[in-house]
């Protein structure tokens, strides 16, 4: 895909290591926002943006409610809220029931983004131990978006990308090494 308007990366157990390896290699000139939804324990809020901002030249920040989503920024979903995308390309937060035992749920972000960005959306699902994200990938596909997963072989916990592979027509399966180039070529 060219002219990508949003890249959303979802992950759970074993995905942080992937981000730590991939983010440093993402070009500072990317022309789309990178939105990251990672399952984690509550209360460790500011740690993840801090940790990741040390690894990239791009600005990294926690997504705030009503904030306009801008290209070239890495947004992190806050812990314990679902992160939704509005039609006017702003964020909303939502404290409704957990989905797949998770809040933030990757599904919630993938699904709301699907309609907004349609065929300019890329959803990347990383390592993890539950099936969150799978329904979201389906929705993204049905709006013309692109579904990409980490190669289960390379994932610390293969279950999540495996489930996606099983239930969704995946566009690309990437090793960790291939991710930076794939992302850089989306601009």
């Amino acid at each position: 895909m060219k002219n990508c308007e949003a890249l959303i990366i979802g992950g759970s157990a074993g995905s942080l290591d992937v981000l730590l390896r991939v983010l440093p290699l993402i070009s500072p000139d990317v022309k789309f926002p990178v939105i990251i939804v990672i399952h984690r324990k509550n209360g460790s809020d500011s740690l993840l943006p801090e940790l990741l901002s040390g690894k990239t030249q791009l600005q990294v920040k926690e997504a705030e409610e009503k904030e306009a989503i801008l290209p070239g920024i890495i947004y992190i979903a806050p812990s314990d809220y679902h992160l939704l995308i509005e039609m006017n390309k702003t964020f909303s937060l939502d404290y409704s029931e957990k989905v797949n035992y998770s809040r933030p749920a990757i599904d919630a972000t993938f699904q709301t983004a699907a309609e907004v960005y349609q065929n300019k959306l890329v959803c990347l699902l990383l390592s993890g131990s539950n099936a969150d994200g799978v329904n979201g990938l389906k929705t993204a596909k049905s709006w013309g978006g692109m579904a990409v997963i980490q190669d289960p072989e390379s994932a610390q916990v293969a279950f999540m990308p495996q489930q996606a592979k099983l239930h969704v027509k995946i566009d690309r399966i990437l090793s960790i090494e291939d991710m930076p180039e794939f992302i850089n070529l989306l601009s």
């Binding site: 939704l84 995308i85 509005e86 039609m87 409704s96 699904q111 709301t112």
Partner: peptide
Amino acid sequence: YSKASLKRR
């Protein structure tokens, strides 16, 4: 109300 959440629910 924020539309994304409302529509989802």
